[in-house]
Design a protein around this nucleic acid. Structure first.
Lengths: 340, 340
DNA sequence: GTGATAATTGACACCGGTGGCACATGCCGT
DNA sequence: ACGGCATGTGCCACCGGTGTCAATTATCAC
């Protein structure tokens, strides 16, 4: 143990009277070790207060003890929830969390990610939607010898690399709930086209309507981009119709709240004049009045599961939980429609 | 160059006909190098596409190329903004960003941080408020041989380790703005006691009132905790007074919006019946109706500056920018008070 | 008891950089 | 031509682990 401080694997080896390789085996819980040796070395480790140097391990293994979250500027709450989930998943381990944003619209995105992976060599990465849907980026991770989990994508055949939620079913449930309350002129504010999650959510909407035998009125389906502003715009269009809908299902909370604002701005009362349901269950949904009825998206759980898949034994990853339930949170923004 | 792929410093040295130490010097821009050698080695590096291995460097230097943001669960938007700022600050460098939350109320917080610093050995850390105010935690970083910047604290004597904003002045300006509009019964919703930022903000409030010769009415000063709920509670109390205030200054946007909700719930119109001003300028403030007039807190700029201080040359850190301006954003939640 | 086989353990090179110090070289005054 | 000094460069140990493979020891069937 040099003057510098911390004991090293050499100090432990010397003190325990074994080779450093044996100490290394103890640290790594190698199975081929006699119980006696293990106990003895473990005691020495405890006595000396030895903690393996992560940098040295990372260097030798060519792999940092880090999980990286790679994302394309999702909203703040989503990102923070994912971080929280990953941190829960790696709690009490030696892993740390890195965050790396990328620009989905940049032509060099693949090169940027490759460079990041080669530079920092994270042990594993969590790909957030929507970039989690790009197969080429996932392939990049595989090539870099890096474990990865794609969140919210629907590659059902690759449970090892997937953690997602049953949005379709949850939306079906939510819309059916509206129908059960007596609504039939139900509007939909969609998410950005071309991605899985909006498609699934729309799918759930259509299934619920079909199930109830209600034709979807194209007039009542408005495009959106998951932003507050797009919710306001869609909401404005809807409430100004000659025969406005009695309920709106928005594909996320931000748009739902945008629609609320738009409705109110046009003199409508919520929920008396129009019921609104969102999706995500962000804190926002409890910060508006009335509290927004919404579908809880288990993002923290998904992130936790993703982290555990990555740091757990590879053979477990495939079998580990990868489909988490989204559930309806009934709050104050839905009531039966007014009798005409 | 082994079968494994990437060229190493040895490959470069061999190809350039110099020692690896010389290549190392080129990488590190050591000044004591002949122009000729540098050019030659740089050419070889470019030809081979050599990229220094960060893990090896980290190992040799006992320092990872990582900036860590250490925080105690601030709100999501703040955290994301800080991350964005730091990332801007380290753009085009080899540095990466880690995030490490800690629990302010845990008795082991110091131990937790020490363990984190020893494990991951980040190059530098950014301490977010409110834990940035704890001198013992800053001391910990210093001991760990780790650069650090404390955000939002007011150790004016340590510019090297500080990045903050002139909240006091900005609040004074904002409240003066209210006064100029004709308000005199102005309420204050405070932040959590015991921290710098709420204290500064309150200080600005008092200075503005004193400057205008208006006595601060204790009845109109309500405690808050920076949460939405505390804003609602404070707002409720204020608007239900026999003689309610005509304007409210809340120490952050969340509370301001809570107060808006409370006012509206009690039948008041905003801004006609009561004006409201917040602080932070979160996206939220543009997502409510009317848009919230608020003080823009330059958190992204602060984080960028912090990162640059950390990765820049030490002698620059002290002189680098560390006090950034907070500025009033006039939006729709303030009008002159109704004539009685 | 003995050889065969399996289970443990150790020796040593290696990962890819950096630090310290000796050595080589160039420039200068004398 | 020569010593003195500043500058530029190379040698080799070292950071603290892991992988490989050989050596040692334990276990077992006969």
């Amino acid at each position: 143990m040099k003057a510098t401080g911390k004991p090293t694997i050499n100090d432990v080896a010397r003190a325990a009277g074994v080779s450093k390789k044996t100490v290394s085996r103890v640290i790594n819980k190698s199975p081929q070790l006699s119980e006696k040796t293990r106990k003895q070395v473990e005691k020495t480790i405890a006595d000396l207060g030895f903690v393996p140097n992560l940098q040295a391990r990372a260097f030798a293994l060519r792999r940092n003890f880090i999980i990286a979250v790679i994302h394309d500027n999702p909203n703040a709450q989503l990102l923070v929830n994912v971080q929280q989930g990953v941190l829960e998943g790696i709690a009490d381990t030696e892993f740390g969390l890195m965050v790396q944003p990328v620009d989905r619209t940049s032509p060099t995105i693949a090169e940027d990610i490759r460079e990041f992976l080669e530079r920092q060599r994270p042990f594993g990465v969590v790909l957030l939607p929507p970039i989690s849907e790009r197969d080429d980026l996932a392939e990049l991770c595989r090539e870099a010898g890096c474990r990865f989990v794609r969140m919210g994508s629907v590659k059902l055949d690759e449970a090892e690399h997937t953690v997602t939620s049953n949005d379709r079913e949850a939306v079906r449930e939510a819309v059916t709930y509206l129908i059960d309350k007596g609504h039939s002129r139900i509007a939909l504010i969609e998410g950005p086209p071309g991605f899985t999650s909006p498609r699934e959510r729309r799918g759930g909407f259509e299934e619920a309507m079909a199930q109830a035998g209600i034709a979807v009125d194209d007039e009542l389906v408005k495009p959106g981009t998951y932003t507050f502003e797009s919710g306001v715009n869609a909401g404005e269009e809807l409430v100004r119709m000659t025969k406005p809908p009695t309920a709106i299902f928005a594909c996320n909370d931000e748009m739902a709240i945008g629609a609320m604002i738009a409705a109110r701005r046009n003199g409508l009362l919520i929920p008396e004049d129009i019921s609104i349901v969102g999706f995500d269950d962000t804190p926002l949904s409890s910060h508006v009045w009335p509290n927004l009825t919404t579908v809880h998206w288990p993002i923290v759980d998904m992130a936790r599961a993703a982290a555990k898949k990555i740091i757990g034994p590879p053979e477990q990853a495939a079998s580990a939980e990868w489909l988490l339930p989204s559930t309806l949170m009934e709050r104050g923004s839905v009531v039966p429609p007014k009798a005409k």
